[in-house]
Design a protein around this nucleic acid. Structure first.
Lengths: 161, 161
DNA sequence: TTGGAAAGTCAACAATACTGACATAAAATG
DNA sequence: CATTTTATGTCAGTATTGTTGACTTTCCAA
């Protein structure tokens, strides 16, 4: 446990007890629950779930993305993603076009009604984030971003801007 | 970043573009994915999943907690939690005792082997958190905590220490 | 004492993850 | 150029974990 010896250097100002770390872990759990609750609430009126929301979000952020690239971002199996995409394409929220260079690929983008649903979900989530950012202040936001970037797997950082 | 317009008030230093908020949203997604990956990896060797981990975590943190109280924390239905608890009790990782005052209640706590599994899961997760905290620094950690507390639903704060 | 509320359990179903098998297209190899 | 290998995406079946509904036991209050 929190091994800081009495010879701690100045560069090691953090006194990390197990209890402090467990608090951070619980904070992640509760915050993520709140973070997903607003879109989940909206999606109850549809036949869609959180998986559809994630697909809509990242297709919106990366127009003409391929299934493979989306797979890398989401970190699920292609079979799992495929079920979700099939529904969204059938319902005309997502447009899937055969790739020009490589005809094995599919290029995905949102249709106007896809954009509409994505925006209503995004709006609810952004509202919560904006309120949290404002309440915590600019320095806190910087810290929030820094810690989260260090929690995530490094190779996933390429998917941030 | 966060450049404020020249008409910004002192109380409103944050200039939050949709893009900045969307970046924060994606950061939450990627960080949570990393956050859960280490325990998930370990649990692949068992017949348990993330739901079991959550139960073990909060029973460990709140010895003799009732099923109802655990339900409030986890935010799932009691039927869903019950399946998980039944397995953990059958496998003797959790001890369920009829309440003394109120015999409708069950008081839950970890057995020694339950503590052992919980600790191995916790250890992996704490290791990642500790590394992230150290890399980001003390001020960042404070900001991380502040933003996360503002993201979560206010009534859930009673479950933090 | 009786009727309702609370705590927990059992059963069936839904969403979303998974593995395996497969079709098609591109790339690599002879 | 023909054949094999690799990559992309789809279809089918299974596992985990969420849901609602029906039920028992226990407590409490009228």
């Amino acid at each position: 446990m929190a091994d800081h010896s009495n010879t701690a250097k100045a560069e090691n100002l953090l006194f990390l007890t197990d209890d402090q770390l467990l608090q951070g872990i619980e904070l992640m759990f509760f915050a993520y629950k709140g973070f997903t609750s607003d879109p989940d609430q909206i999606l109850q009126n549809y036949t869609y779930g959180r998986a559809h929301h994630r697909a809509l979000h990242f297709i919106n952020r990366n127009p003409n993305i391929t299934v493979s690239a989306l797979l890398d971002i989401l970190g699920v199996t292609k079979q799992s993603l495929n079920r979700v995409l099939r529904q969204l394409v059938e319902d005309k929220l997502v447009d899937s076009k055969v790739g020009k260079r490589d005809r094995r690929e599919r290029n995905l983008k949102l249709t106007p009604s896809g954009q509409e649903l994505e925006h209503s979900l995004s709006d609810a989530q952004r509202k919560r984030m904006r309120a949290a950012y404002k309440a915590a202040g600019p320095d806190a936001v910087q810290g929030f971003r820094s810690v989260l970037q260090n929690i995530m797997d490094p190779q996933m950082k390429i998917h941030l801007d």
